[in-house]
Design a protein around this nucleic acid. Structure first.
Lengths: 183, 183
DNA sequence: CCATCCTTGTCACACTTGTGTCATTTTGTA
DNA sequence: TACAAAATGACACAAGTGTGACAAGGATGG
């Protein structure tokens, strides 16, 4: 579980630990990385790690959470909240972070993204749902949101599994075929 | 990684270990269950655990894999392969296994299902894709499959997160609203 | 300047993990 | 029955884990 940290020193330690793990993941498998290693790489004691995170997985959760925060900020800067525009931003955002997705893919941890994803997607839909045809039906809307969120996440994972060779534009073009026939 | 096991004794051990973990998960958190505990509960030595699984997570992966195998078998018994019928079977199947989903939910491990899910869904679509309007466009079809698979999984997870109070029929009724407006 | 709060480092401890080795038990087959 | 194959158990070991306790360091506000 991620604590609420406000102290600048602790924030710095958290960043160091996060960077240390990401650097280590370049060279070796996630499961073979020990907490001792992460702390050493971050020039911190092992004890400090346990004061900030519970497990090394928590570092990834924190990092993904941070990325989603950045994405939400992007969305708020954009004035056009039509679905097509939002989805384009979504794919472009993850394309820019494709290296991180590649790190997850190598370790078969892509589904891991779903943890934070399902928690944060409501916030995204909060922004765009004004246009939604089910805006009047709260329950149906929440399930429609869940469906779309899972669908888009799944597209992202497939894109990543395929090596992210396609550009965001190519994915968008595919989506135009996909949406009308999603089921 | 799950090994290919054919020997009846090894299969029995695998089942014992699986049941032991599921029983232990009734009483305590997954992360607080040690492999020593699982092996003891299964009346096996810890060494035997490591001959069959690499981690305790692998037990869940194996179990989920087994469940999907059962679901595929159900699909093959059904002659009507329209989407609506298939999806109804899907929700009914997981409703019957809602207790297991509840165990995962408690441990915030629902997204875990996605691992095997994304790997096995192509087999499901293999069965039903004859009806699909994109059957001629291989690449678009594979992305449409990914979208639908992720969407359905997401619905399942939301259903489980909400405590699985709704019946499969109620979920199906909601889906009729959701599909036409999924995006 | 000092008191205080927060963070970190160090040490210690019991426990768990993952693996190697080899004897023992069980299964299936000739 | 006897023998080969396979699975298990017992033991050992280095390494890692998670946590408690306490001292030391740095930043902040009065």
């Amino acid at each position: 579980m991620i604590q609420e940290i406000t102290n600048p020193i602790a924030i710095q330690s958290r960043e160091w630990l996060t960077n240390a793990l990401l650097v280590l993941m370049e060279e070796k498998e996630f499961k073979n990385i020990s907490i001792t290693e992460i702390a050493t790489k971050a020039d911190l004691s092992r004890r400090t790690f346990y004061r900030i995170f519970e497990t090394k997985e928590d570092i990834l959760v924190y990092y993904i959470d941070k990325l989603y925060g950045e994405f939400l900020q992007l969305l708020n800067q954009e004035s056009d909240h039509r679905f097509a525009v939002t989805i384009r931003l979504y794919f472009q955002f993850w394309y820019e972070h494709r290296h991180f997705l590649e790190l997850l893919r190598r370790n078969e941890m892509l589904p891991f993204i779903m943890n934070q994803y399902s928690r944060l997607f409501p916030e995204v839909f909060q922004i765009v749902k004004g246009n939604h045809p089910l805006a009047h039906n709260t329950e149906a809307l929440s399930y429609a949101m869940a469906f779309s969120a899972g669908g888009l996440l799944s597209i992202l994972l497939k894109w990543a599994e395929d090596g992210m060779d396609k550009t965001p534009e190519e994915i968008m073009q595919l989506m135009e075929f996909v949406f009308p026939y999603s089921l």
